[in-house]
């Protein structure tokens, strides 16, 4: 494959290690946390019963840690919805020459517990762009890393999301 055919334009490579969008903050409510746990079918008492959480050594009601990736999702005007239901311009800023992005996998380091009522700030950086060739043609494997920090300035988690763009 020649350079001109690459799915990764040079300006996309320049964004590695830079912030993707602005840092965002959100306060996690009990209802939001428990809705997620109900929807996942995970009824661990540490998410629902404060006494059980304290008995297990926590300082309060715990938030299911995999919720972290979703607490910053804002609503958007309906006219910004695309045909596939996703919002327009979600990937803007990276500028890959692709039409579709799929969730490829994820990794989390959980450093400290996350509690109901915590205000979490997320900073996302582009960490990797790798062009590969699969059975259905070329694709780009992108890695984004988000650092989650609580209201006490402590990093509670780091999440890495792998996406497959083609």
């Amino acid at each position: 494959m020649t350079e001109t055919e690459s799915l990764i334009p040079p300006e996309a490579l320049e964004q590695i290690d830079r912030l993707v969008g602005e840092p965002q903050s959100a306060t996690i409510s009990r209802r939001e946390s428990q809705r997620y746990a109900w929807a996942a079918g995970d009824l661990n008492p540490i998410y629902f019963d404060e006494a059980a959480a304290r008995e297990a050594g926590y300082d309060g009601l715990v938030v299911p840690p995999t919720l972290l990736g979703w607490i910053m999702e804002d609503g958007r005007p309906l006219d910004q919805l695309r045909e596939d239901g996703l919002y327009k311009g979600r990937r803007q800023g990276i500028g890959l020459r692709v039409s579709r992005t799929m969730f490829g996998g994820q990794e989390y380091d959980f450093v400290e517990p996350i509690y109901v009522g915590d205000t979490i700030t997320a900073e996302t950086r582009l960490k990797g762009l790798e062009e590969k060739t699969g059975s259905s043609g070329p694709f780009v494997l992108t890695t984004q890393e988000t650092t989650y920090t609580n209201q006490h300035g402590r990093v509670v988690a780091r999440g890495r999301v792998l996406s497959i763009a083609r």
């Binding site: 996942a40 661990n44 059980a52 299911p64 990794e107 959980f110 792998l162």
Partner: peptide
Amino acid sequence: GAWLSQLVTDWAGPKGRVLNVGWQN
């Protein structure tokens, strides 16, 4: 991914602490 995390937390019990999870779809 939430289910993977649940498999581990259910097995570990309330005083277990999940430090890392990773998965591919």
